[in-house]
Amino acid sequence: MRLTFGDHPVPGFAAAYAEQLRRFPGGPAAWQPVHTVYVPADRFDRGTVRSYGDAALELLDTHLPAGADPAPVFGPLPAGVRERVARKLAAEPVEDLRIDFEDGYGARPAAEEDRHAVAAAREVAAMHAAGGLPRRWGLRVRSFADGDPERSLRTLDGFLTEVTGRAGTLPAGLRITFPKVLMEDYLRQFAGWLARLEEGLRLPAGTLRFEMQVEAPQTVMMLLRSPDLAAGLDGRLAAAHFGVFDHTAACGLPPAEQRLDHPACDHAREVTRLALAGTAVELSDGSLAAAPASTSTADVHALWRAHAALVRHSLANGFYQGWDMHPAHLVSRYATVYAFHLSARDAYAERVRAFRERREVDGVLDEPATVAALAAALRRAGHALGEP
């Protein structure tokens, strides 16, 4: 039999293909920050980012001065990593800032939260005017699961109204964090309110995007039963951030096992990855809720070792962003991220060149999918290292 094709050879194909492109536009290709720094709203001001950087630099200079061997703390590092970290802390200590009105902020009287929302917006506008606002920034509002969505939306409205009024525009890079998503409809309701806020603030449609937090078994199950969740939110879902402590507590784990590398956390992250694969939704890991036990070098090194191990675990599992909660975390975050990318970059580049030139590298014949992963890793390394 010889098939004959007309103007429409496969009935229904065009519609199915268009739906595929809508639901699965591909992985994130743009710059993604290596971390998010959360700061409680009542402790945030225009100097917060610089104070974090200065505190991290002081820790670096005091406990790992230039010329010191970093291997006892971080293991063997590629040449120049310590210097890269120092330059980063001096120039851009925070890539993504989130002003927290949820767990890190705590329960407050309504009038007090209103004041802090306006005050935080005022400080953001001042940072923007001075050129000091991080490339990614935003706020975490309260959860609808608390039973008071009006409080969450009131803070968001007050904050955005004040920022745009003072800055004359909405500065680029805004992200809104939406926590404790226990019901699918909360996502749709929140997306709808963002559309209303855009209209009220006269912002272009689609400007306001948010990141959901995956921090409860109910959320993980939601992703399992609704893998097309992102496609139904009109492109507003920008990222999914894992919350280690809420999730491990909700799973009934003992306090000593509430850690980022617990198998329960690995499972939740893997479900999140599978549910959001190909949707261009960014993925971020959680945090280490610890600070140096004292100002001694031994205690600072112990914190850095613990944090670096968790960052390596995230990176090895394909989560290239995580939360940092203390200035000390900036040192171990950047040192580990830089080492991860620098240690493999040259080998990855050579394998891509070999594939294009149709030759082997050490007996390896890479498949096209692997080469695409290698190219993506090189782009990610360039973004993380601040290099083309």
Results as ranks from 00 to 15, higher is better:
residue 163 V to P: 12
residue 195 A to E: 11
residue 183 M to G: 03
residue 125 A to R: 01
residue 123 E to R: 15
residue 152 S to N: 11
residue 190 F to Y: 08
residue 139 L to K: 04
residue 133 L to W: 03
residue 167 A to V: 12
residue 166 R to Q: 00
residue 200 G to I: 12
residue 161 T to E: 12
residue 151 R to F: 08
residue 195 A to P: 05
residue 175 R to S: 13
residue 166 R to E: 03
residue 190 F to R: 01
residue 149 P to C: 00
residue 167 A to C: 10
residue 138 G to I: 09
residue 195 A to I: 12
residue 185 D to R: 11
residue 180 K to C: 07
residue 201 L to G: 04
residue 172 A to S: 15
residue 172 A to I: 13
residue 142 R to F: 11
residue 192 G to Q: 13
residue 188 R to I: 12
residue 184 E to R: 13
residue 130 A to S: 14
residue 191 A to H: 06
residue 194 L to T: 05
residue 131 G to R: 00
residue 143 S to C: 06
residue 162 E to D: 15
residue 153 L to M: 01
residue 129 A to V: 00
residue 150 E to S: 12
residue 125 A to M: 03
residue 168 G to D: 06
residue 198 E to Q: 07
residue 150 E to D: 10
residue 151 R to K: 10
residue 179 P to D: 06
residue 186 Y to W: 09
residue 156 L to K: 12
residue 175 R to P: 13
residue 193 W to F: 04
residue 156 L to P: 10
residue 155 T to K: 15
residue 191 A to G: 14
residue 172 A to F: 14
residue 145 A to E: 01
residue 124 V to L: 07
residue 135 R to H: 14
residue 174 L to R: 11
residue 157 D to C: 13
residue 158 G to H: 11
residue 194 L to M: 10
residue 167 A to D: 14
residue 126 A to I: 03
residue 164 T to K: 06
residue 153 L to D: 01
residue 173 G to Q: 00
residue 192 G to E: 07
residue 160 L to M: 10
residue 153 L to T: 03
residue 177 T to R: 10
residue 183 M to V: 13
residue 188 R to K: 12
residue 157 D to G: 14
residue 144 F to E: 06
residue 139 L to R: 04
residue 168 G to E: 08
residue 145 A to Y: 05
residue 167 A to K: 01
residue 158 G to T: 10
residue 192 G to M: 06
residue 159 F to D: 08
residue 180 K to S: 01
residue 197 L to M: 02
residue 200 G to F: 14
residue 184 E to G: 14
residue 173 G to D: 08
residue 175 R to G: 09
residue 147 G to N: 12
